[in-house]
Nucleic acid binder design. Structure first.
Lengths: 114, 114
DNA sequence: CCTTTATTTCGCCATATAACGAAACGTAAT
DNA sequence: ATTACGTTTCGTTATATGGCGAAATAAAGG
């Protein structure tokens, strides 16, 4: 029960949903997500830790960057069944469409890299 | 987006999940749910209004009682896809098993009716 | 009409959550 | 080493949430 509740709580915030929808396009580093959501880096980092804790996403370090991507493995349970539903949802949502568009065409180096 | 968030928030509380799992057995009136969860009636009423607002359940008045049941209609969207998932989840959970057992065998009149 | 019973609404309190900036941490480059 | 940059952690603040009891509402029965 505890884990199920944690799973639903992770999905109960619009910025976290936007992150998951963005990650449907491609893996992203924290600076990219921060730029798109227009939130403080610390806030985005917290959101990512909540999504990771609920097993919706996994991270991968590369130098000083951290890449986040959807957790498509089978090694989880609730997220494995909820992520496919989310794929079909909010396709028309204004924010989501804009976010995905940004994420698809922008080069990370222009946003945050050196 | 607003509706999706409301939907997930409705599922983000253990007592509301217990209510949905109990309603898988049969429709229940507020007094029965209150008895099983061992919460104040006002608290249960609030939980039910949140679940109803997210279209997981519907209510039906019968005299001074109000019956609640799962919303199995097709007239909603998110709940329609989430309720089947929930059916398969928590089947082994201790609280859920106890709740369902109580609900299956107890007569409403013994709990609250006159 | 007045009481009783089931439910909902309201006001209050304690805890949880999301936001921020500052500080800490880790890696890469100078 | 020192600096620079991306990320995380920490402390604070404002708002949201879940709990309760008291009061309000609605229906049934004397």
């Amino acid at each position: 029960m505890r884990i199920l509740i944690k799973t639903f709580k992770a999905l109960s915030d619009p910025n976290r949903i936007r992150i998951l929808k963005m990650l449907q396009v491609r893996p992203l580093c924290v600076c990219e997500i921060t730029e798109v959501l227009n939130l403080a880096a610390s806030t985005v980092s917290k959101h990512l830790s909540i999504l990771r804790d609920a097993e919706f996403i996994i991270d991968e370090k590369e130098g000083k960057w951290v890449w986040y991507k959807l957790n498509d493995e089978e090694n989880q349970f609730y997220a494995n069944q909820l992520l496919p539903l989310l794929k079909n949802w909010l396709a028309e949502n204004k924010n989501v469409v804009e976010d995905k568009h940004l994420v698809a065409k922008v080069d990370r180096k222009e946003i945050c890299g050196t």
